[in-house]
Simulated scan of single mutants.
Amino acid sequence: MNPSPYLIPKQPAIYEEEIKKSHFITYLAHTPSIESAKAFVEQIKMKHQDARHNCWAFVAGRPTDSMLWGFSDDGEPSGTAGKPILAQLTGSGVGEITAVVTRYYGGIRLGTGGLVKAYGGGVQHALKQLVTVEKIITSSLRLRFEYSFMPLVQSLMSQLEVKENMAHYSDIVDIIVDIDARCVDEFTQAIINKSGARVTVESLKEI
């Protein structure tokens, strides 16, 4: 797992323009999965059922993970809509994002180059308006220890901004915490060293 953070959309963005009487509307939204990306595409298609084309592309995870990319020309000539849209998204460095570009045809053909410029350009303008936030990649750890180690564990958790997720108190303390993935090794080493390995740390696999 790559522990480095990446940017994601904070809120949707819309950009509209008219090119040779064709009306283009570009929608950008935060979509953290392929399912949510496809759902957003369908939502825009329903909203603009009367449009000639609803072309789209998505990056449904980390910007560099091409396994989570998708695109469609939706009836436009092959390579003139979906790929230019995707190129803008992947070039932006923003992840978990879907772009849908709706086109109401105005009766004037734009040609292959014109279409590429229109679809890619609309997304480029929308991306300039987009407000993003940093997504921190977290890992889950399970800690088990005797009650006497509680102050030590709480102190180290506070130093590295580790958040308690679940806790079970019986003859020992058994807690699950979420931590910035970049800090896992540092936190694990510190807690084992300072407790003399009396605190056990188990990494939980992401489901």
Rank of each mutant, 00 (worst) to 15 (best):
M1H: 13
N2T: 04
S4F: 13
P5I: 06
L7A: 15
P9Y: 11
I14A: 01
I14F: 06
Y15P: 00
E17V: 03
E18Y: 09
I19G: 07
K21W: 05
K21D: 10
S22Q: 04
H23R: 15
I25G: 09
T26A: 13
Y27W: 08
H30N: 11
I34K: 08
E35S: 10
A37G: 05
K38S: 06
A39V: 02
A39L: 06
A39F: 02
F40G: 01
F40A: 01
F40H: 02
V41Y: 00
E42P: 02
E42V: 01
M46K: 14
Q49W: 02
D50Q: 10
A51L: 07
R52Y: 07
R52F: 00
H53L: 04
N54R: 01
W56F: 11
V59Q: 03
R62P: 03
R62F: 12
R62L: 08
P63C: 09
T64E: 14
T64P: 00
D65E: 13
S66I: 09
M67S: 13
L68C: 04
W69S: 05
G70H: 05
F71C: 01
G75V: 09
P77A: 01
G79M: 08
T80M: 05
G82H: 03
G82V: 03
P84E: 08
P84F: 00
P84Q: 05
P84G: 01
I85T: 05
Q88R: 12
L89T: 04
T90W: 02
S92W: 07
G95I: 11
G95E: 05
I97E: 08
V101F: 00
V101C: 03
T102L: 02
T102K: 02
T102E: 01
R103A: 05
Y105R: 06
Y105H: 11
G107D: 03
G107Q: 09
G107A: 10
G107H: 09
I108C: 00
R109H: 12
G111N: 05
G111L: 07
G111Y: 06
T112G: 12
G114R: 03
V116Q: 06
H125W: 03
A126G: 04
L130M: 06
L130A: 03
V131A: 14
V133H: 09
E134R: 11
E134P: 04
E134T: 13
I136Y: 00
I137S: 12
T138G: 04
S139V: 08
S139Y: 06
R142S: 12
R144S: 14
E146S: 14
E146G: 10
Y147S: 10
Y147H: 14
S148G: 11
S148L: 13
S148A: 15
L152R: 02
L152W: 02
L152A: 06
V153C: 01
L156M: 05
S158W: 03
S158Q: 12
Q159V: 09
L160N: 06
E161P: 01
K163G: 00
E164G: 15
E164Y: 04
N165R: 13
N165C: 10
H168G: 07
H168T: 14
D171W: 10
V173P: 00
D174F: 11
I175V: 15
I176A: 12
D178C: 08
I179N: 10
I179D: 03
D180W: 12
A181R: 10
A181E: 10
E186G: 04
Q189S: 12
Q189P: 00
I191L: 15
K194A: 14
K194N: 10
S195C: 13
T200Y: 07
L204P: 04
K205Q: 12
I207P: 00
I207M: 11
